[in-house]
Design a binder for these strands. Structure first.
Lengths: 223, 223
DNA sequence: AGACCAAATATGGTCAGACCATACACCTTT
DNA sequence: AAAGGTGTATGGTCTGACCATATTTGGTCT
């Protein structure tokens, strides 16, 4: 086993043993290297892995906020994962879109009150001056819906999906040429959620994604 | 921006520009460092990130298979991501289980013919001598079901979920004390799929997870 | 006493060079 | 032709040095 992997295991074990949590600091790289009897480069490679996984963040300088701090931000990792694997064609856009549809239907069925962020995104989309700007707020709308469903894992996955699909989304908006239909869909989703009509909310989400991405597998109504 | 991040960007850009795909080799660390005008340690940190994301694998030695090779294995990354974030309490077991239920219901609704791996796992569970062994084949059963649905992203997520929940699963089996009911559930799922009855397959999966993990949010039948 | 400024210091970031273990390539010997 | 030894390119690791950054410290001026 490589040295940095043992360092990784020991750091993870220490996090569990000491009950470290978000916000706590790890020892400095030099100190950690000495404690574990390894070189600083091995410690750095282990920290790089943890940073990639979104559990530590390193700050330079001196003081209470410097050094490696425990965080928990899986979003970026998931987005990188999807982007790179899409680039290597291990996953198809179709699979990503099916997954997105599944998550949004699941969320739409569970959210009973539209959060303020959804309403704000709706207005921002009305005021958008470019496809890029529209898509930015469109993402915010859908992320707000999923966040409201209360499953942080699914929220993280959806954010990653949207990050990986931003270019597709901009292209889809350009292809449509206008955003009126999309906004009508958004308002239908919003209204259904405010009305507490889960079935209608699911149908509205499904119709919306079908419009944006023709060819999606929407025939299955039973989950 | 840190040096290794620019290296990362340039490697990714080169993958896209040269149309590199799974199986292709990257230049050696020393050569890459010289080409990019950076130190070898920066190249190594970038490669470590790519390895963590499951797109590169490094082999020592010499020959056609040595060096950094492009792969595409997101499973391990996802598993690490979930495990570490569960450890930091950013995600709850409940959220993970809800996600698993969603994926398995989605899969059960779409698979119309049980793959051989499901049948084999069924027999292996009958022959299992310990909870650990039972869970191993139980995982294989559920993974086979999801794989058959044909969405590699969801398959990867499910594998990661199961890896993160192995200890919970073993505990659940121990709590039940016997595996007869679980096997009956599995056979019900298997039969529904073979019969092409999507609604029954979904109901069977739902009942199965409800038995294994009491307290799951199973009341929502509408997606 | 307070405010301000400069030096000291601790931190991560990077580089260079060296050495090791590994695994194949190549040549020599039989 | 087969067998074995040597060479070599590869990743893995360590050491030591230096840099950039940001806080801490301590002194100085008002």
């Amino acid at each position: 086993m490589r040295t940095f992997e043992t360092v990784l295991a020991q750091i993870e074990q220490r996090i569990a043993a000491d009950g470290l949590t978000v916000g706590d600091r790890l020892p400095g790289e030099r100190q950690l290297a000495e404690q574990l009897g390894v070189g600083r480069s091995s410690v750095r490679e282990a920290l790089r892995v943890l940073e990639t996984l979104g559990v530590v963040s390193s700050q330079v300088g001196r003081g209470p906020d410097a050094g490696a701090v425990l965080i928990s931000r899986p979003d970026g990792t998931l987005a990188d994962l999807l982007r790179l694997n899409l680039g290597l064609a291990t996953m198809s856009a179709r699979e990503v879109l099916d997954t997105r549809l599944m998550i949004e239907r699941w969320s739409a069925a569970r959210v009973t009150s539209a959060p303020a962020a959804m309403t704000e995104a709706l207005a921002a989309m009305d005021a958008a001056g470019s496809p890029e700007e529209f898509v930015t707020h469109d993402i915010a709308f859908h992320v707000a819906l999923t966040d409201a469903a209360g499953n942080r894992l699914l929220s993280a996955v959806l954010r990653a999906l949207r990050d990986a699909l931003v270019s597709n989304a901009v292209e889809a908006v350009r292809r449509l040429g206008h955003t009126g239909d999309l906004q009508a869909d958004h308002r239908r989703i919003h209204a259904a959620i405010e009305a507490g009509d889960a079935a209608e909310a699911v149908a509205a989400v499904t119709a919306h994604l079908a419009r944006a991405y023709p060819g999606l597998s929407l025939t299955q109504n039973v989950f």
